[in-house]
Write a protein that binds this DNA or RNA. Structure first.
Length: 195
DNA sequence: TAGAGGATTGAT
DNA sequence: TCAATCCTCTAC
């Protein structure tokens, strides 16, 4: 079942980041279907420095974060990688969940082709890599995740004891907020970005 | 309008 | 440890 706008518009982005573990991200780009189970996420909120929209600072890039939850926020990082986020909360409350790793469940051949590799080895283990494998790029910024080329469906439930909470990656500039335990991943899963 | 830097990755 | 690479934001 496709996740509803109500799911995305809950007001606790950290809770949503936890619940997204086990869900399945599905893309149908140019008619090519691929899907992956979400095994690693990070939460970002306008309330803390790690977030592009810290202090509700609105720019051309992060504008979609200020819309109602349930759409994609895709942006270019380091000039090379597209990073895929799910916008959450209500309009005006800029929060999002970064999808950091997937476990491929369908469309393996398409992913291998997009990555230009032959073997299915950790091709979705990292935020920059999974967007390439799934065919996501900046043209998908702002698409509706409940009805578009990109959707997320509910699937298995990850029980709390199988969820690991730790600090986020690559946000040293965020000062004290870099210590927030807002990164979540499925325990012992071989597809997470780092362990 | 120029300059600095980044929610990363893979090779050295 | 370091370069690739280019868009975005900030300051002048």
């Amino acid at each position: 079942m496709i996740l509803t706008p109500e799911f995305y518009q809950q007001t606790n982005v950290v809770a949503i980041a936890r619940k997204l573990l086990g869900k399945v991200l599905i893309t149908r780009i140019n008619g090519e279907l691929s899907a992956g189970r979400i095994v690693e996420t990070e939460a970002y909120s306008f309330k803390e420095r790690g977030c592009h929209a810290y202090n509700s600072r609105k720019t051309l890039r992060n504008e979609v974060m200020f819309a109602d939850g349930g759409i994609a926020y895709v942006y270019l990082c380091y000039g090379i990688y597209n990073l895929f986020n799910v916008v959450t909360n209500k309009a005006g409350k800029a929060e999002a969940v970064l999808i950091r790793a997937l476990e491929p469940v369908a469309g393996h051949d398409i992913m291998l082709k997009r990555m230009n590799v032959k073997k299915l080895t950790r091709i979705t283990s990292g935020p920059g890599k999974l967007t390439r494998a799934m065919g996501i790029d900046r043209t998908h910024n702002g698409v509706i995740l409940t009805d578009s080329e990109i959707v997320i469906e509910s699937d298995i439930i990850i029980t709390p004891k199988n969820i690991v909470a730790t600090t986020r990656i690559g946000i040293d500039y965020a000062g004290a907020d870099a210590a927030l335990p807002w990164r979540f991943y499925v325990k012992d899963n071989e597809w997470i970005s780092k362990w």
